[in-house]
Write a protein that binds this DNA or RNA. Structure first.
Lengths: 113, 113
DNA sequence: ATCACCTGTAATAATAATATTACATGTGTT
DNA sequence: AACACATGTAATATTATTATTACAGGTGAT
């Protein structure tokens, strides 16, 4: 789950969603707390939560809970600086360390392929 | 469906799968026909078909049907040369042309967010 | 105490992606 | 004619993702 190959896959999975792309674009302007961001992208907060977790798990954003002046807890998310150059070469390199539990020893189907 | 933003999303969706990453890595060595590739990646042909279509739709590979010397029809797939530099900036730029039919005018939920 | 904000999550519904099975077609060879 | 190998797809099952609903808790201000 932490090899370079798996990391790449996780990044692609994180970016394979229009909402999450918008979130990234949104956070690039400046960091935001969750409720604020929910209003901005017009999304329910629980749903936004899921998307944020996927982005954070991929290492594209980071969140930290802060205490505002008036004592309210606010979770701010901000962008991580990242740069992935996606080419056949880089993908090939990533695949070398892809630990896929679903790499079968035997084919899934009959020899009808 | 053909704006730069949508194209980016399609590329991310295409690469967000371990099998498809392996297919790309496989085709980088040299082009292959479908049945050959199916044996190589140990996958049923119908399933491989679906993955190939997703990769081709994203413009990462191209396939063309050829006739072998002994008259058999064989569909060869080969890699496209591509390079996507994934950064907060490039994502922001892509989002500008993201035509998401699911961009609601009103929030999905009650004002409970 | 009620309101207006905020965080966090569990349970579920709805939808999309993935995978399998079964079949259609064609060729050339034994 | 039966076999080995190729392409192509329709129908279905399985699994994962996405989305919603309904709650829990906290703070400070009216």
């Amino acid at each position: 789950m932490e090899t370079p190959g798996n990391k790449w896959l996780q990044v692609f999975e994180a970016l394979a969603n229009p909402h999450r792309l918008r979130i990234v674009a949104c956070l690039r302007v400046n960091r935001m707390y969750v409720s604020e961001l929910a209003r901005e992208v017009r999304m329910s907060r629980p749903l936004l939560y899921m998307h944020l977790q996927r982005l954070e798990a991929a290492g594209l954003i980071t969140g930290n809970l802060e205490l505002s002046d008036d004592g309210k807890a606010m979770k701010y998310y901000e962008l991580t600086e990242f740069e992935y150059v996606v080419t056949p070469e880089s993908i090939t390199e990533a695949v070398r360390t892809l630990t896929d539990k679903a790499a079968p020893e035997t084919p899934h189907t009959k020899e009808d392929n």
